[in-house]
């Protein structure tokens, strides 16, 4: 089972995870940001619990989208600056796979905490248990797509000093389908008669598509920025 081919992938995954959770890694800042966004929204729209329950899934989704995108700007930058990326390129590892593993590690460190925090934040937004479950399920299915699409933006802006804002601007239009189907599926728990299965399946399909397109495009961008 543990052929050398699997070993380096596993080692890379472990390294990425260890980097993400150590001091300065910033894995949990995403969750904090998520909490901040959800806290701020009621100050904007008012403390009306019915309204908050109605737009709750949308708030959680937009919060997760922003938290994912803003956490992505350092995905490749550190490795590029200290030469790790060049070493991986020279070692003959398929860059697409490297990108995919880095995305997986990034999602485990920042995306998964968002998914786990969503039910707790749902309490603040007066969500029913069913709606809470729906939001959590859609976030679980959809946040990988956000990370993978965002990786393309992170690879494109890797050579820029302050690429974070530009990354978000470039990537947001591409994430609109994910947002639409994620919120629609989550809303099925709130509004009677709206389908859950169709948007949820499309959401899973979007995650799978971006699992292919994201690493390929990001690897291409990284190769171009290297030479």
């Amino acid at each position: 089972m543990t052929s050398p081919e699997n070993n380096w992938a596993l080692a890379l995954l472990q390294r990425e995870l260890r980097l993400a959770v150590r001091i300065g890694g910033g894995a949990l800042v995403g969750v904090l940001f998520f909490l901040a966004v959800v806290t701020v929204i009621p100050f904007g729209v008012g403390p009306d619990l019915n309204l908050l329950a109605r737009i709750g899934p949308a708030i959680l989704w937009i919060g997760a989208l922003l938290a994912t995108l803003l956490g992505l700007d350092r995905l490749f930058q550190a490795d590029r600056d200290d030469g790790t990326l060049d070493l991986m390129l020279m070692a003959g590892r398929p860059l697409e796979l490297v990108v995919l593993i880095k995305c997986l590690a990034h999602w485990l460190a920042t995306g998964l905490p968002l998914v786990l925090a969503a039910p707790i934040l749902g309490i603040f937004l007066n969500l029913e248990p069913l709606a809470m479950g729906a939001v959590t399920a859609t976030l679980l299915a959809g946040t990988p797509a956000l990370t993978l699409i965002g990786a393309v933006g992170a690879a494109l802006t890797v050579s820029l000093r302050r690429g974070g804002l530009l990354l978000a601007v470039l990537v947001v239009p591409l994430t609109i389908p994910v947002l639409i189907f994620g919120v629609s599926a989550a809303n099925a728990a709130l509004v009677v008669g709206t389908p859950f299965k169709v948007p949820f399946v499309v959401l899973c399909a979007l995650s799978l598509i971006s699992g292919v397109v994201g690493p390929v495009a990001a690897a291409m961008a990284l190769r171009f920025s290297a030479d």
Binding site: V152, L156, P173, L174, I176, L206, I209, V213, A221, F224
Partner: peptide, 13 residues
């Protein structure tokens, strides 16, 4: 690269 990813994405959008 961004244009092509966008072109792939436009029908989905």
């Amino acid at each position: 690269i961004l244009t092509l990813v966008g072109a792939l994405n436009l029908p989905i959008i």
